[in-house]
Design a protein around this nucleic acid. Structure first.
Length: 747
DNA sequence: TCTCACACCTTTGAAGTGG
DNA sequence: CCACTTCAAAGGTGTGAGA
């Protein structure tokens, strides 16, 4: 960044309006904006009871020894000394407000809370803010409301109504990309983040700020943590991000970053020195262009810059000794209080349920339907969690980040990138309905996001809005709530990526959804009934074949030594019974299936493999018994073979595998017209059964169009043996017999 | 590419029943 | 009072026609 762009503004109360024009069009989240941690903690009420969210020991002690407990809490909890108006005058533009409603308080009065309740009410404080904004019409304040201790839905509604009426047209809608210029053009002065699901549906309310917390008091670790997070890119969902760094193990947080939150705590000299440095040396509006330079990184850089004599501002030049001393104090202070962290959460593990199913969808590029009214996800995103603190409170959130920088289209059976993506539209964060809840609750069973709905319209109601034909990756955020210790863990699984669509493009995806989603069972049953119907067609086909054989042998029997014919009833029955049994076996994977049935992978192998033995065996039986026929089939079949029967879609749905995949029942080709004791030579594939012509193999076609009368279309099972007219003639099969066969089966 | 009505299914919860 | 069953309503699916 050029030095000119690092201009520091001397005035705190109107520094935004005094920003150089180069910053006017930069989204606010790309500016480094000073804020105050627990903004309202300067007015905690010693007479109020402690919060119920505090450990029970503290509550018990407060019951018996309030005169001791409360001053201690106030000393610990007071992170600010200046009033909210003074903070704004000093340049603070990010307000961290923890809201609470006093237990058993019948009035609709809301307070701030940090350990105990505040003296000032929310109404009083925010009215003060609104008044200040009236006097500073070009200043923009980011207000983050969170915690909401002891509040129910009705109270949320009351509070939201108050916010809407207080700030009215000053509130920047959440679909706007807020820059100074944008805000000035529309007189927006408030960006209000409301960290509760009650805010869904209000376009004036922004989602929760994302906190990046290094969870360490070591400045080097803070820097490396923020550097690492910086490489991951910006938060995927809109809203302010707070990169927070705890400079003391007692949670006297000094926060800074994209929307830095500065703690002006008087009790922590190290932190205060650094904060003072930030405030007095860096100053508000020490803005950075994208990519954002994070707080401490910037401090470090500017320290080097100042120390190296490259004065950015006149005030900093020649302050080498001062800076070194400051850093030394900070380092020693922080070294003394290394954070201990929570050993439990360090072992946090999150695993994806149904990962095998997700993987199958991923293999064929998963698709998720988005509709105007919202459509559930399938497979359902479900995770198992271990390693949480069983007694701590957590919220589980879900949002969706663009998986890549493409728009996609489905062309010729595959997804291909198709240009630049639409701007990532505002996507609500879905808060798991069980939130907040104890760690023990989250760990006792897999956490399922089965109720989340995906939409392509911005219609609130907690639905996730996605762009159609864009690829997304779900992200789960585990947020520790209800205490000053705030932990955020983000988890995502690449197998859960999908392309949002308004209608399924890939038939394989449709098949997988129908197969595994119980709500789509109707279509599974439809397929089954269709299959069963075809099964009977197949049985009919084989019977016609047998019938046809009977015709060709003049009678259904074999010639004995004395020249008479015997009817091999048992053989016929075997043929008739074997085929349906094998057919049923073949259909087993699809019949009676439910969601618990394991998927065998893509549809192709499922229908492919069992088909072969069914046909092979059936044909082999026919072949075997035809051995007894006086009239060899080979005499009646043309070498230019036609298909046998392929009534089921599953058979023909399999692409003809080509010669390499063919199974030859008897490899030796017969010369056309050659008479043999063996009736014919068969070649069997997964979907075709044909006599083997010298020149090659005829591929299969569907037999659904098979005429009911067993006519002479080439796809008819009858036609397998008789349908090639010239050959039939050559074989000497008389037309009368043919007609008789078409009229019915005789057994 | 998207929307919508539709048939068909599962899920859910209230009502009924019996021990 | 509880456990179990029944049943109807609500809601989740993919489909296919049409915009």
């Amino acid at each position: 960044m050029e030095d000119e762009e690092r201009l520091c503004i001397s005035s705190g109360s109107d520094w935004m309006s005094e920003m150089p024009s180069g910053f006017w069009d930069i989204p606010l989240w790309n500016l480094s904006i000073p804020g105050s941690h627990d903004t309202m903690s300067y007015c905690l009420d010693e007479r109020s009871s402690v919060l119920k969210s505090l450990p029970w020991v503290v509550q018990v002690l407060d019951t018996f020894f309030p005169c001791i407990v409360r001053p201690c809490i106030i000393k610990w909890a007071t992170t600010q000394e200046d009033s909210i108006t003074n903070q704004l005058d000093l340049g603070i533009r990010f307000l961290d407000l923890r809201i609470a409603h006093k237990i058993k308080d019948p009035d609709k009065v809301f307070y701030f809370a940090h350990g105990i309740y505040s003296l000032l009410t929310v109404k009083e404080a925010l009215t003060e803010v609104a008044h200040w904004l009236d006097q500073h019409s070009k200043e923009v304040v980011i207000i983050a409301l969170s915690a909401f201790d002891g509040m129910n839905l009705d109270q949320h509604k009351d509070l939201i109504q108050f916010l809407l009426s207080t700030f009215d047209k000053k509130m920047c809608p959440n679909h706007i990309v807020p820059s100074l210029q944008q805000c000035w053009n529309h007189n927006y002065q408030v960006i209000l983040s409301y960290d509760d699901s009650a805010a869904f549906g209000y376009e004036e309310l922004w989602p929760q700020c994302e906190y990046w917390w290094a969870d360490t008091s070591d400045p080097n670790n803070v820097i490396s943590y923020l550097e690492e997070r910086k490489t991951e890119g910006r938060p995927v969902h809109r809203g302010m991000a707070v990169d927070q760094a705890d400079l003391s193990h007692v949670s006297k947080a000094c926060c800074h970053a994209r929307a830095p939150v500065l703690d002006i705590n008087q009790n922590m000299p190290g932190a205060n020195l650094l904060c003072c440095f930030l405030v007095e040396e860096q100053r508000p509006c020490s803005a950075v262009l994208y990519p954002p330079v994070f707080g401490f990184y910037m401090v470090e850089e500017e320290l080097r810059s100042a120390g190296g004599g490259g004065a950015v501002t006149g005030a900093r030049g020649g302050n080498d000794c001062c800076i070194t001393r400051l850093l030394s104090v900070v380092e020693s202070e922080l070294q003394a209080g290394r954070e201990k962290g929570d050993p439990t959460e360090k072992q946090l593990k999150v695993s994806l349920e149904d990962s095998e199913l997700w993987r199958k969808f991923k293999e064929v590029t998963n698709e998720m339907i988005v509709t105007k009214n919202g459509r559930r996800m399938f497979p359902v995103l479900k995770v198992s969690v271990t390693g949480l603190d069983p007694n701590a409170m957590y919220s589980f959130l879900l949002d969706f980040s663009p998986a890549d920088g493409h728009r996609w289209k489905y062309v010729n059976g595959e997804w291909v990138p198709a240009g630049k993506p639409e701007p990532h539209s505002h996507s609500c964060v879905y808060i798991h309905p069980d939130s907040p809840n104890f760690g023990a609750h989250w760990m006792k069973a897999p956490v399922s996001f089965n109720k989340v709905k995906l939409t392509n319209k911005l219609n609130g109601g907690g639905q996730i809005m996605l762009n159609s034909l864009h690829k997304y990756e779900p992200q789960i955020h585990i947020v520790r709530v209800g205490g000053s210790h705030r932990m955020v863990t983000n988890i995502s699984f690449t197998d859960t990526q999908f392309i949002a669509v308004t209608a399924y493009q890939n038939e394989e995806i449709t098949a997988l959804k129908i197969k595994h989603n119980p709500f789509a069972k109707a279509f599974l049953d439809a397929k089954e009934s269709s299959t069963s119907e075809k099964l009977f067609l197949s049985i009919g086909a084989i019977l016609r074949i047998i019938s046809n054989l009977q015709l060709k042998t003049s009678m259904w029997g074999y010639r004995t030594a004395d020249g008479s014919y015997q009817t091999p009833t048992l053989c016929v029955l075997l043929v008739v019974v074997t085929f349906p049994i094998l057919e049923v076996y073949r259909l087993l994977p699809t019949m009676g299936t439910n969601t618990t049935q394991a998927c065998t992978g893509t549809e192709q192998p499922r229908t492919h493999l069992p088909t072969c033995p069914a046909i092979i065996t059936t044909v082999a039986i026919i072949q075997f018994f035809s051995f007894f026929f006086e009239v060899s089939l080979s005499e009646n079949l043309s070498p230019g073979a036609v298909q046998m029967f392929s009534s089921h879609e599953g058979w023909t749905g399999v692409s003809p595998p080509g010669p390499a995949a063919m199974l030859s029942m008897q490899p030796a080709p017969s010369s056309p017209g050659a008479s043999s004791q063996y009736p014919c030579l068969w070649t069997v594939s997964s979907c075709t059964v044909s006599s083997s012509p010298p020149g090659g193999i005829v591929s299969a076609t569907h037999s659904q169009e098979e005429p009911a009368d067993g006519g002479s279309t080439s796809t008819s099972p009858c036609s397998l043996l008789q349908g090639h007219g010239p050959t039939s003639s050559e074989g000497g099969v008389d037309q009368a017999s043919h007609s008789r066969a078409s009229n019915g089966l005789e057994f």
